[in-house]
């Protein structure tokens, strides 16, 4: 049987690189996706995910396995890193970068995916992060509440508002969905 997250974190703090890599292998994909959808940048997403793992090694790291699952903690850490970066940068600059990364210009060129990306980028940040965790990462509402430090009812209502907004913004693409997917 594999080691628990607590054991792996303990080993990593004692200098065992292998333990950190095991934690990385297990969780980095959803964390990267979440970070990428928040930032719109592969470089930023990678940097954020790396920071979260390295933060686990620091003495002042707040991870408490008795209170929080490692996945929840790491998603929360990604969110906090993103918020920290948001505060550092000019918000408009970030918004612009989100618009620039539309999949038309990169790997995801389909008009539909671009429209979805733009619509999600237009959501208020507080709704956007919840939509990303709920829809794309399929996390339970209770876990999202823990990550975002909100009540479940608040998570639920923000998710509903986000979906209602997207429904309006993407109404024009509804018929296209049938053809494109």
């Amino acid at each position: 049987m594999g080691k628990s997250a607590e054991q792996l974190v303990g080993d990593a703090r004692r200098g065992k690189e292998r333990a950190l890599l095991d934690l990385f292998d297990e969780h980095h994909r959803p964390l990267f996706r979440f970070a990428w959808r928040l930032t719109g940048s592969t470089a930023d997403a990678e940097d954020i995910v790396q920071e979260c793992y390295l933060a686990l090694l620091r003495p002042d790291c707040g991870f408490d396995p008795a209170r929080t699952a490692i996945r929840t903690y790491l998603f929360g850490a990604v969110r906090n890193q993103w918020l920290k970066r948001m505060r550092r940068r000019d918000h408009d600059e970030l918004r612009e970068s989100v618009d620039d990364r539309t999949p038309e210009g990169q790997a995801l060129r389909a008009e539909l995916a671009g429209a979805v990306a733009r619509a999600i980028a237009e959501l208020p940040d507080t709704q956007r992060e919840i939509l990303l965790l709920a829809h794309y990462e399929q996390l339970p509402l209770a876990e999202i509440a823990e990550i975002t430090e909100l009540e479940i009812t608040a998570v639920k209502s923000r998710l509903q508002r986000a979906r209602a907004t997207l429904r309006e913004m993407l109404a024009a693409y509804a018929p296209a969905t049938e053809k494109a997917i």
Partner: peptide
């Protein structure tokens, strides 16, 4: 519709 937006 949302699923059409893939992350790399």
């Amino acid at each position: 519709l949302l699923n059409s937006w893939d992350a790399p």
